[in-house]
Nucleic acid binder design. Structure first.
Lengths: 344, 344
DNA sequence: ATGAAAGCGCTAACAA
DNA sequence: TTGTTAGCGCTTTCAT
């Protein structure tokens, strides 16, 4: 257990000054080849590694980004993280990752903790609780201090910083329209994320599509619950009392549970009922049958957010140049919807 | 954009010395109530936050743990991370998370990067490539330096440090036995992770169970591929030419694809064929039908690893006290296997 | 009760 | 070409 060696120790061992060692290790032109060689050799031999902390203290730059995720078990966030990680690594940045669990308190605490020189900037998705409380002072304070923040997925207009979002309304509109074009007449909506913005916006897109095509929305066909707990029961009830030939599921869990219910009832997908999902995650790809769904490009979201933040940190963009990037979506056709012969 | 304030600035503003400010902020008994009040008020007013970097440099402790994950999209690793995160937060530690993508180079680079004062210890899952190359010097060097490491899931005997693992052989044995007890005679194995230790060990457990119950393993019933690419084709071939009434799938993706194939062929689960999976992730829970599978307690794995590492860091356990913790598994019965009436 | 000074590991301006 | 010194933000002896 040989502790790490410092520049000072090298200096002492080689009877030169500390700054000579520093310069030699940085390959400065000021130092003679002879001395450089000697010092570098000694350093290598003793596995010298510069102390990052000391460097950061000096440069006022840590090359570290703080990431806030509401959770990591949802495929979407895992993929966003992957995207961030990719460009961060390319540009030599490390990631400090914190999972807020959608708690306001944890979010505030974490941001306080990290905004003291530990990180150069934040990439964050606002916790649900924070959004409900409408308490954004911690974001504002940090921006005030000159630390850049990029918000993704969940944002709020009161926080004046860069944002990367998905157009939920438009995407839901397109998904619903797709069902109509594949000849579905009675299109239901199933959600287990009531209360979240995404749920609100996707519902809006669904309603917009129906209205646009002169279909009066039927309340009985809209299941919008806060959790997945009673979802199966409600879907069964709906199917007991209504004719349904298309279902737009707002989140992956809803899609999976809907599929399970239909299967239990002996309803064939897509022959009897078509299903279209949102968020093209692992559940969609590997479900039986594979699910047609809206791909959100989570990975791109992460990449864009990271690139933007790093540009801000490195002052390639002025701090006050604020933008909102909208990541487009794409419909991935699989086997849970009927093949369309008329393309549009 | 008002930059962060330092202790020095407070001292200047209040015409006291730096050390007085430091002591006052730390509520030292040496300072008069009067002065303390004045200083603390001023600090609060100007939102003073101590610079973590400077503190870490001083204490030689960063209260930060480096986490190495082969990937984050697999539910298992996401859950391990969650477990680590939980205890780390409780004990006031931050996490620097790095995804190695199973690359040896990235693993070495990351560990080099972080082991320079940035982190107090590592929790790591060895990258596949590293395991293939059998190159463990980076781990050994870091341990030499006195930085503790806890390895989880994938380990190697040449690395002498704390470990947290699953008993793959035993678990696979139990899963296979379960199929036999639910009256399956011809039990196939499907894997898309050939080459990994997990694949090797689970296969071993499967064979052990067959042998134990006097069944001669049939090579035609063992599909062990390196990726999921040709998996469906191979499963179809197997089903074309063999009688199969039980399938042990070694990973979640194999389970999902097997389910898709059976469904396409009109084979009923579990009436015609029972399936049992490994790793009780999101795919198992939400598949149609829900999958009976071996639960690995990924969350516990993370918790145990983190607790152990922090104890090491805080020197509650001597550095040389090395243990290997085996996390037990549990079979979660769902709908992809026949109900057993004889419990065991 | 307050302050001066050294030091954590390193860089960089300046001097020799 | 090499060394001295100050300083990054903070804590902690040791004087005063």
């Amino acid at each position: 257990m040989s502790k790490r060696i410092t520049i000072k120790q090298i200096a002492a061992a080689l009877h030169v000054s500390i700054s000579t060692v520093s310069k030699a290790l940085n390959d400065s032109y000021e130092i003679s080849e002879e001395t450089k060689r000697k010092i570098q050799e000694y350093a290598k031999e003793h596995k010298y590694k510069p102390n990052t902390l000391a460097l950061s203290l000096q440069n006022k730059k840590t090359k570290t980004i703080g990431i806030l995720l509401p959770n990591i078990l949802t495929y979407y966030y895992a993929r966003v993280l992957r995207g961030i990680e990719k460009v961060a690594t390319e540009k030599g940045y490390n990631l400090i990752t914190c999972i807020t669990n959608d708690s306001y308190k944890k979010e505030v605490y974490t941001m306080e903790m990290l905004s003291n020189g530990t990180i150069d900037g934040f990439i964050a998705c606002i916790a649900n609780e924070t959004l409900e409380l409408k308490e954004f002072d911690h974001f504002k304070d940090i921006l005030e201090e000159g630390t850049p923040i990029v918000l993704y997925n969940r944002v709020h207009k009161d926080i004046n910083c860069d944002k990367v979002v998905t157009d939920n309304i438009k995407s839901a509109y397109k998904a619903t329209r797709f069902l109509m074009r594949s000849e579905c007449k009675n299109i239901a909506l199933v959600s287990s994320t009531k209360g979240l913005d995404i749920s609100k916006f996707r519902l809006k897109g669904y309603l917009k599509a129906l209205t646009k095509y002169d279909i009066t929305p039927n309340e009985e066909l809209i299941i919008n619950l806060k959790s997945e707990k009673k979802l199966k029961t409600r879907i069964n009830e709906m199917l007991d009392n209504n004719q349904v030939d298309g279902i737009f599921t707002i989140d992956e869990v809803s899609a999976a549970l809907t599929t399970q219910v239909l299967n239990k009832r002996g309803i064939k997908i897509p022959e009897d009922v078509s299903i279209i999902g949102f968020t093209n995650g692992i559940l969609s790809r590997y479900s039986t049958p594979p699910l047609t769904s809206v791909n959100r490009f989570a990975h791109t979201t992460g990449e864009v957010a990271a690139a933007r933040l790093i540009d801000k940190i490195e002052e390639k963009i002025p701090f006050n140049d604020i933008t909102t990037e909208i990541i487009k979506t794409e419909l991935v056709e699989r086997e849970s919807t009927k093949k369309l012969f008329i393309k549009f």
